[in-house]
Design a protein around this nucleic acid. Structure first.
Length: 199
DNA sequence: TATCAGATCGACT
DNA sequence: GTCGATCTGATAC
């Protein structure tokens, strides 16, 4: 079943990030269904987390949707080339987010290959936050899109996801956040080849 | 106003 | 293992 908006509006972003591992992310962009199982996420909290774009109430053109109520997409460009896909959580004004870093393709693989320009399924089809957005057709145009809608949504297939299959570790690429960089807010599905390549 | 570093990936050595 | 592509926001002048 499709996760309702209420799922994202709960206050504990770390718990939401953990629960999203094993759920299924789908998009129907240009009328084509693509998606797969989420195998890697990271939590970003607006309070006490320097790595979060909304830390200390930063409010810019880029971060403004983070301050809306949970359940919408926060897409932005990094390094001038890659779109990263986050889901805003918590209630309006409490700008928390979950970054989707890794996906195991299950639906619409042919279309994903086309979008990625690959001849055959390979690990680099969706293993990495900048890659899965390409494969799913997510761009900055989807900034602010409802993730419980008909364009982008997440389904719960009621798979058993035992704790021992979930690995918590520090997040990636945020050394600038000082001590906060050590917070174990990155969640991966143990043994999945579809987790992102970054250390 | 200018500079810098970043929640990345892929090409190349 | 290293480096370039090239956009955004933060910080320094």
């Amino acid at each position: 079943m499709k996760l309702p908006t209420a799922f994202y509006q709960r206050p504990d972003v770390v718990r939401i990030a953990r629960e999203l591992v094993g759920k299924y992310l789908f998009t129907r962009i240009d009328g084509v269904l693509t998606g797969g199982r989420i195998v890697e996420t990271e939590a970003y909290a607006h309070i006490g987390d320097q790595a979060c774009h909304s830390h200390l109430g930063r409010f810019t053109n880029r971060t403004k949707v983070m301050y809306e109520a949970g359940g919408i997409a926060y897409c932005y460009l990094i390094y001038g080339r890659y779109t990263l896909f986050n889901i805003i959580t918590n209630e309006a004004g409490k700008a928390d987010a979950v970054l989707i870093r890794g996906l195991e393709p299950t639906e619409g693989v042919a279309e994903m290959l086309l979008r990625r320009g690959l001849p055959a399924p390979a690990r680099n089809l969706t293993a990495g936050p900048g890659l899965l957005t390409q494969a799913l057709g997510i761009t900055t145009k989807h900034y602010g899109t409802d993730v419980s809608g008909d364009l982008i949504w997440i389904e719960d297939h009621a798979e058993r996801m035992p704790d021992e299959r979930l690995v918590a570790s520090p997040r990636v690429g945020i050394d600038y956040a000082g001590l906060d960089a050590a917070l174990p807010w990155r969640f991966r599905l143990k043994g999945s080849p579809w987790v992102s390549p970054a250390k």
